[in-house]
Simulated assay, not measured.
Amino acid sequence: MCFAEAILFYGITVPVFQLVVAARSWPQRFLVERTINVLLERRKRDKLTVEGDPAQSSWDSVLCRVPVEIWAVVKVHVAEGLRDDEADSLVHGLHSAGERDCTCPTCLRTSDRDRAPRTTRYTLEHLAECDDCDQGLRELGGTAESLEDNEQLIKRMLYDFNLDLPAPIPISGDSVPPRFDVRALCAVAVPNAPDAMSEPVHGEYDYENDIVELRPRYFVLPKGIDGRFEAFLRACPMSVESVADRKAKAGHSLPGKGRRVVKRKKAAGLAKWHLWSSCLDCE
């Protein structure tokens, strides 16, 4: 059946694949950061010890002498390394699913990609330039499938920031269908967003519809709510974009306002109220 859905949420929209990569790397990253934090806390209380061979006891003094600033750098590099690993894995999976002989710049660096060892690490930017990845994306169910497959990982990561994924549905401001748009966005929002769904009868002009009464509590935001988004973006750096900005960058005119200049925004105050509607046509 056809159906239409609307969701009211306070939040931001970010690229789907950036969010997926961050979520896939989060469990390991969370463990590493927690381990380093425990280590620093024990060192602060002078209770840091290393169990094992007494001959290795010199490690105690070494760990105690490492400055806090160095551990901060270690956490950043570990986070970046884990994200890079997951991006490489995700893009390689899409790239390998393509069946044609790829002529993208990355593959041209290797004379025989089927037999030679893979020496180039993939990044998310590769998706926009590679026909093989585009074919692989379609064969593996598209952006929507990737979002749905990683929904629980994304929700688990956002839970640590008291945020949520309102719906595992990609949004696109381009002419490409969201399901096959490698640059599609998705929402990150305050939990418990109200939503409504209507299911019209197939083939009839008179269809069912719903009127939803929104309670005032939906418009009362918790104190310091923007701090959640700031903390999330500090921990998981990614682009914050909007469909309106995407259209403006592409040269489309906005209704009643014409073209406008898109300026770089700061992390603070990025979250806004959104009314997100989608419709699935009858097949």
Rank of each mutant, 00 (worst) to 15 (best):
C2P: 14
A4Q: 14
V14C: 07
F17L: 13
V21M: 04
A23N: 05
R24P: 09
S25P: 05
P27T: 05
R29N: 08
F30H: 11
F30E: 05
E33D: 10
T35M: 08
I36R: 01
I36V: 14
I36N: 02
N37M: 01
L39K: 02
E41G: 01
R42H: 03
R43A: 01
K44A: 01
R45Q: 11
E51A: 04
E51V: 00
E51G: 00
P54V: 03
V62F: 14
L63N: 03
C64L: 04
V66N: 02
P67A: 00
I70E: 04
V73N: 02
V73P: 00
G81Y: 03
D84Y: 02
L90Q: 06
L90V: 13
V91L: 04
H92F: 07
P105R: 13
T106Y: 06
R109L: 09
R109P: 00
R113A: 09
A116V: 06
P117C: 05
Y122H: 10
L124V: 06
E129Q: 07
L140N: 08
L140P: 11
A144L: 13
E145R: 15
S146A: 15
S146D: 04
L147H: 06
E151A: 14
Q152D: 11
L153F: 11
I154S: 03
Y159G: 05
F161Q: 04
S172Y: 05
G173D: 06
S175I: 15
S175F: 13
V182G: 00
A187Y: 05
A193E: 08
P194K: 04
M197Q: 15
S198E: 12
E199P: 00
G203M: 06
D206L: 14
Y207G: 14
E208I: 12
D210A: 12
D210Q: 13
D210I: 14
D210S: 10
D210M: 15
E213C: 06
L214M: 10
V220G: 02
I225L: 08
G227Y: 00
R228I: 05
R228K: 14
R234I: 00
S239A: 12
V240D: 01
R246A: 12
K247F: 05
K247S: 05
K247V: 05
K249M: 08
K249W: 12
A250E: 10
G251C: 11
H252C: 10
R259L: 09
R260D: 03
V261S: 09
K263W: 07
A267V: 13
L270R: 13
H274I: 03
C279V: 15
L280S: 14
L280R: 13
L280M: 08
D281E: 11
E283I: 06
